[in-house]
């Protein structure tokens, strides 16, 4: 399989006042198209930082980063925003749905940036909700849904514009075991049946078992790359 994500000599430095903190040190990493990668490591090791760079939410201090053949390390803010809307879906620990909007409208959000008509937006969002098995909750607001259901709405929102790449930061971190299981099975299904490349940060070894590979990050450096059966 060809590499979807190519990372070369990637470093990230945060400046806090006069102090410079290098959070990621010279990372080299290829992530194959169609992979499901679990990223583990102690708190503060730089997992979120790396994920945000790959998702184009932040820009590296040094090194190169390409996704799907496109260098995104040098894109400006506007171009990066457009790139994100077309190529990446995001899933966060606390779902980050808009509380005033129904599940349906939350899922439609990314489509507002496309040229799709209102009817098409509605239809695509309905398909995405069906895929996460929440078609019957389309008119519910986030507060009327359980954590697991909210996270599945968030996943529907992440896939509705059909991106190649899903980045998930501790998607099960706030869920009970059973809901976590559902979410992980859903991600696995999206990877297996829909060809989505998924990068998932997790603290939970059981969650990591759903992935094809696991990577460990420690103090800003990749320490091992264990292939799983």
């Amino acid at each position: 399989m060809s590499a979807l994500v190519e990372i070369r000599n990637l470093s990230k430095v945060y400046t806090r006042g006069k102090q410079k903190i290098e959070v990621l040190h010279h990372i080299d990493l290829d992530i194959a198209k169609g992979d499901f990668l679990a990223l583990m490591g102690p708190s503060g090791s730089g997992k979120t930082t790396l994920l945000n760079l790959i998702g184009g939410l932040d820009t590296p201090s040094q090194g190169s980063l390409s996704v799907g053949g496109q260098r995104i390390d040098s894109l400006g803010e506007g171009a990066l925003a457009k790139w994100r809307s077309e190529h990446v879906g995001f899933v966060f620990q606390f779902y980050n749905l808009l509380p005033m909007l129904t599940a349906q409208k939350n899922v439609e959000l990314p489509l507002l940036l496309t040229k799709l008509s209102a009817a098409q937006r509605k239809q695509n969002a309905a398909i995405a909700l069906k895929l996460v098995d929440l078609a019957d909750r389309a008119t519910h607001k986030p507060t009327e849904l359980s954590g697991g259901q909210q996270q599945r709405v968030a996943i529907a929102r992440a896939i509705v514009s059909d991106p190649d790449l899903l980045v998930c930061d501790e998607p099960t971190g706030d869920l009970d075991r059973q809901s976590a299981q559902q979410v992980l099975e859903l991600l696995q299904m999206l990877n297996r049946d829909h060809g989505k490349t998924i990068i998932m940060v997790t603290h939970d070894p059981k969650a990591a078992e759903f992935a094809r590979h696991t990577l460990h990050l420690d103090k800003g450096t990749l320490v091992e790359q264990a292939a799983q059966a």
């Binding site: 925003a81 077309e86 980050n96 959000l109």
Partner: peptide, 14 residues
């Protein structure tokens, strides 16, 4: 702020 951050994450421009 977190909601606006999400909109920007999804690709809403400045």
């Amino acid at each position: 702020i977190p909601e606006l951050a999400i909109l920007k994450t999804l690709g809403f421009s400045n």
